[in-house]
Design a binder for these strands. Structure first.
Lengths: 244, 244
DNA sequence: CACCTTTATAGTCAGAGTGACTATTAAGGA
DNA sequence: TCCTTAATAGTCACTCTGACTATAAAGGTG
């Protein structure tokens, strides 16, 4: 911002950059981490799967663009999508990441509870959830973006209350534990997990009236809602190594 | 990346975005956190101080641009600057953040040991280190970027070995402790800090021959170098609350 | 219906890590 | 020589965690 623009800020005098957003939208389905992908209908990478995303419009911020795309691709209303957790990951700016032109992309990660299969509407040829553990190569540098997103989400679960974003409004501690186990790919000790969650003020709060979820196999579990806290002190560390 | 470009990817057909980098370059001087700022020589914000930065060139990545600007502003060679720790913070894309045109900026944070005052070379009217705790309002949204950078650095000290990046090649544990105290703005217990650092494998390693730094006021301190580890397990948590 | 399986919940116990200390050592300065 | 300063060594209690065992309450099966 300190140097003069090439050719003194004439907006059309230099080779322009396109700015896009890419979204890594995660959910937990049946104990597996899933990610929303769209099938590319045109070259390059025609027929490949890619992260949803699109161009940032002239009068919107990258985050607004991300929320708009998220609403379009998931079929949620913009109001609902506006309430979702959306986290800016990082920006990818390799000069050759798109063979057509110079595209700088701001990547976001979103966490959603289990949603219905997306309608194939919009401009994408098709959109569906994929098991994040069994993916073929994606278009562009989206493998890298997806890996970065997974790392970030995993790290964030350690020191934030973000895991509740994967859960429906009311959930059991077993469901919350499964979020951690699914994202981290490990098994956790149930009593210890329970103790940690319940002794962290504001992580979860019991639903009034102490209802229980019946119909399962074992003893009915108590229901909880997300609490007011956002950070976890001390953190809930993964059994082994780290990321980032 | 899934939607068609406006006007089918004709690079000049839509209003272009400029892409810049902004750098928050931190150092510790005399027990205070300092940040490198440049004085703006032209409107808007003429006479205000701003983060160093500049345009991303057509054939370079944002990170390359950041390293190039860092070398220019600090007077270091590109080789030296290439070895410095540079961390992508986030991207700022508010449509009105620059009154002249649409500028999307990728912000980076850099940590350097105490350096000489920068020469006023390059295109900036002037460049100098400022005490990060006593700053007037900066140009553009740079106050916000600087605050985000400070938060990120503080959080990273907790779970990484990054603090050694603020230190010269050989340093005492007291100097390392002062990095933590300066960035966090707290005082730490010396024996406890020492115990934590020394029992974390790979955080620091004693300089061979066990030399000591004499000339100070008290007992000479042993010298250490940065170790091979990059992550801190378990983390070195701040006395009180959190960030991010 | 008795019994097994499954899941939730309660509780115990030892070890690691940390915060708050006190004590000792080794330099410079008055 | 004594005082001040800073580094280093060590203690102790408390918290948190990992690894357990035990009990409760549902569904399923013969």
């Amino acid at each position: 911002m300190s140097t003069a623009a090439p050719a003194g800020y004439d907006p059309h005098a230099f080779e322009p950059f396109a700015v896009t957003v890419d979204l890594a939208v995660f959910t937990v389905r049946g104990g597996r981490l899933h990610v929303l992908l769209v099938e590319r209908g045109e070259d390059p990478y025609k027929g490949h799967w890619a992260l949803p995303g699109g161009f940032v419009l002239p009068r919107e911020s990258a985050e607004s663009a991300a929320r708009r795309e998220l609403a379009e691709e998931t079929g949620l209303t913009e109001d609902t999508a506006g309430a979702l957790h959306l986290e800016q990951l990082r920006t990818y700016s390799d000069p050759d990441r798109d063979p057509r032109m110079r595209v700088v992309s701001v990547a976001y990660a979103a966490l959603v509870p289990d949603l219905p299969e997306p309608r194939g509407g919009g401009d994408a040829a098709g959109a569906r959830w994929w098991d994040a553990g069994a993916l073929g190569p994606l278009a562009f540098d989206h493998d890298r973006i997806l890996a970065d997103a997974h790392d970030r989400i995993g790290a964030k679960l350690e020191y934030s209350c973000l895991a509740t974003a994967f859960c429906p409004p009311e959930f059991t501690l077993g469901e919350l534990q499964q979020v951690y186990e699914t994202v981290w790919g490990v098994e956790l000790d149930r009593p210890n997990f329970r103790r940690k969650v319940l002794t962290t003020p504001g992580f979860v709060q019991a639903v009034e009236g102490s209802p229980r979820r019946t119909g399962g196999r074992g003893k009915p579990a108590a229901l909880y809602r997300a609490g007011a806290a956002t950070a976890l002190h001390p953190p809930l560390l993964r059994p082994e190594g780290r990321s980032t």
